[in-house]
């Protein structure tokens, strides 16, 4: 049977890590980060919607948001944003045929900077609050 466009059965191939190479891993992480950020955007809008329910409701949520679980969630958002942004620079450069033979090294650099950046935020977020 001819493969169909946008066949959800094949969506798994976007995320299937089996047999993938470095560029494939970069692609998979980029998709996961993107989906996480989109999910966060809707969550953010939902939280902002609480403002319409009055200051008491919003303050109550803010108090809950200071729990370690919420901070961990925010840290994931920062990690996703850092990786997605830095890998975006890699994709942008390679898209103009700049540094394509070094795309693996650029991925490792983006990943390393994302991890380091996330660690800096983690220390700050878990110690200041």
């Amino acid at each position: 049977m001819e493969p169909q466009k946008n066949d959800p059965k094949n969506l798994w191939d976007w995320f299937n890590p089996k047999g993938r190479n470095v560029g494939g891993w970069a692609f998979i992480l980029n998709r996961i980060a993107a989906l996480g950020l989109v999910f966060y955007l809707y969550l953010h809008l939902f939280v902002l919607g609480k403002l319409a329910q009055g200051p008491q409701v919003f303050d109550q949520f803010i108090a809950t948001a200071k729990s370690p679980l919420y901070i961990l969630g925010e840290l994931l958002v920062i990690a996703a944003a850092l990786y997605h942004g830095l890998n975006g620079v890699r994709v942008l450069l390679t898209s103009f045929n700049i540094g394509v033979p070094q795309q693996k090294q650029m991925f490792y650099t983006a990943l390393l900077l994302s991890v380091l950046g996330t660690l800096v935020f983690a220390v700050r977020m878990f110690t200041v609050h």
């Binding site: 190479n21 470095v22 970069a26 692609f27 898209s95």
Partner: peptide, 10 residues
């Protein structure tokens, strides 16, 4: 193309 570079790898 979404720059996975799997084509070049294989």
């Amino acid at each position: 193309c979404h720059s996975a570079f799997e084509c070049s790898a294989v």
